[in-house]
Design a protein around this nucleic acid. Sequence first.
DNA 1: TCAACAGTTTAGAATAAATATAATGTATTA
DNA 2: TAATACATTATATTTATTCTAAACTGTTGA
Lengths: 142, 142
Amino acid sequence: MAYAEQYIDKLRKSGLRPTKQRIKICEVLFDTDKTFHFTIKELVKIIENQANIKVSLATVYNTVHAFIKKGYLKEIPLNASQSYYDTNVTHHHHFFDEEENRLIDIHQDDVDEVNIKKTIPGKKIKSVEVIAKIVSDNQSQK
Amino acid sequence: MAYAEQYIDKLRKSGLRPTKQRIKICEVLFDTDKTFHFTIKELVKIIENQANIKVSLATVYNTVHAFIKKGYLKEIPLNASQSYYDTNVTHHHHFFDEEENRLIDIHQDDVDEVNIKKTIPGKKIKSVEVIAKIVSDNQSQK
DNA sequence: TCAACAGTTTAGAATAAATATAATGTATTA
DNA sequence: TAATACATTATATTTATTCTAAACTGTTGA
Ligand SMILES: [Mn+2]
Ligand SMILES: [Mn+2]
Ligand SMILES: [Zn+2]
Ligand SMILES: [Zn+2]
């Protein structure tokens, strides 16, 4: 785990003390190049399974929120009952697979610039997000 | 209130018994041509203020969900802590004013068809929604 | 090196949205 | 109008999330 030092750095540079709980959470979240979408419940389960250390629910929430504040994570409220979080903090869009309850990234370049003709006086657009819901394509076309 | 009969009809046609609670909720929700975006809390407050009848929270939730099922309302999970609901059940998009916590409709025609280049094998797109976050435009450009 | 301080973790309590329960009430139908 | 199915209600429950306050740990400067 030469990764640990990398995370210690990342945390230090953000003014967060590198505690073993935060390093563990970093490992789970960032030890891969792939985007990771998760709910708090899922994250806790993963930590419980692979860690020798225990991390309290409060710490998981606090750390996730600290990372959001620092720009390491993004919150995606897709669901009324539970938030999703995203390690991909670049501007991008999503498929949401309604059958598997799973988010899939759509790179910004894979969506033509969204052109909105309507404007609101005194307001400017800060961000535009596209969510495309997907389901099984059961066309049996031989 | 010649409206009441209209709502009684609407409810009957959907297999919902026209009770005075449901009619009242219909009045609050549908007594205008304008789209109405609301949270449960806001809806309850409005009913309390303008109605002579009392409607329990359970009935508000039950009725809102019944209307969602019937296609009279749409749920919009924008916020992790509370859902928004929408009387506009046509396919459309939204501005979300982050300062006033307010949804504003964008008609489908006001957004060019969103072209997504990425596809997921075995899956087809069911719906596409655009959410544009807006904030005050404090450019003082004389 | 280590004491002092600031920041962190934790168990558990609190909050609040949403849902479930089950008793009571009401609309419908014959 | 009686029987029935459905609806409303107060209340309890569930569950995600946040708060609290005490114990703990990382950092820093003497
Ligand atoms: Mn949050
Ligand atoms: Mn719901
Ligand atoms: Zn993503
Ligand atoms: Zn709308």
